[in-house]
């Protein structure tokens, strides 16, 4: 613990934090406050009625549930992929590394169309799943596939720099002290990776909750079954109902914010516990 709260060795705290807060307010907070203010044109009873309608509640469950599952899937496979990219050499590695960012670069609508084409029952992948009785496109499972697709880069790209930075000495020390490879991973490497992994999880989750473009093509959009919350917002806007749309948006925002706060708190806690956040 080199620095205390009262004495800071490093310069630039005031200016960087000041700029951060100013920019954050300008680009994010002030615009988002417009959303909250717009809902004040509804009475509380109206607000409550809009955000707790059974059909809307069903979409919260679907959107938040599937987003968590997708983020979890991405955490596992994303970590593996990042590991393979950093630690192994194999043919085509550069290409794999390059394509990880693809889900961002493709417009979401294109991703949705491409995924639907692959997973529909006449698609490249769907045709093999259909005889097994697995339907992906136009079912909730299709939504999951789309959410996994758009969230993957977050996990890979947050874990990758940490892995690249990782010192071989630590592992060598652990091995020389008699630890198995798995033990080394579990007790030495994973604790170092955990904060970044949680960040990746949080970001993949956050992105998945709000996603519209790619999901809408593959979802089926059947009420109570495969409708996502962003679609509810769109349907409100189609009826020129700004207040209703922003009401649902505020619920999404508050739910996401709470979940993100918990994940970020967890992240801080794990960093502290492993003594990294000095």
């Amino acid at each position: 613990m080199a620095a205390t709260k009262t004495f800071r060795v490093l310069p630039g705290f005031n200016i960087t934090l000041g700029f951060t807060l100013a920019y954050l307010s300008l680009i994010v907070l002030i615009p988002l406050s417009a959303v909250f203010l717009k809902t004040t044109s509804l009475s509380f009873a109206e607000y409550w009625h809009v955000v707790t309608a059974p059909r809307v509640v069903a979409t919260y469950k679907l959107s938040f549930g599937l987003s968590l599952v997708a983020a979890a899937i991405n955490s596992v496979f994303g970590l593996m992929l990042a590991w393979a990219l950093v630690r192994y050499s194999f043919p085509g590695k550069r290409l794999v590394d390059a394509l990880v960012d693809l889900p961002f670069a493709l417009p979401t609508a294109v991703a949705g169309i491409a995924l639907t084409a692959l997973y529909a029952k006449n698609g490249w992948i769907g045709q093999y799943l259909d005889p097994l009785g697995i339907q992906v496109a136009f079912k909730p499972l299709g939504i999951l596939v789309a959410l996994v697709f758009i969230g993957l880069p977050f996990v890979v790209r947050t874990v990758q720099p940490i892995l690249e930075d990782l010192d071989t000495e630590l592992e060598e020390a652990a091995t020389s002290l008699g630890a198995h490879r798995w033990q080394t991973f579990r007790h030495v490497i994973l604790p170092i990776l955990l904060p970044a992994l949680l960040t990746g999880f949080a970001l993949a989750f956050a992105r998945a909750v709000g996603e519209y473009g790619s999901v809408i093509f593959i979802a089926g959009n059947i009420p109570m079954v495969s409708e996502i919350t962003p679609l509810m917002i769109i349907t409100k806007l189609e009826q020129y109902d700004y207040a209703g749309a922003t009401a649902i948006a505020t619920v999404m925002l508050m739910l996401s914010f709470t979940l993100l706060l918990i994940i970020n708190g967890l992240q801080a806690w794990t960093s502290k516990r492993t003594g990294r956040d000095r």
Partner: peptide
């Protein structure tokens, strides 16, 4: 590089634009 109160809160605020549905992100403007 610094310790201050409300740090997690600030980080979460920075995350927020991800979870805002793109449509709402446009609508705010």
């Amino acid at each position: 590089k610094f310790e201050f109160r409300g740090k997690q809160f600030l980080i979460t605020l920075i995350d927020l634009p991800f979870s805002v549905s793109p449509v709402i992100a446009g609508l705010v403007f």
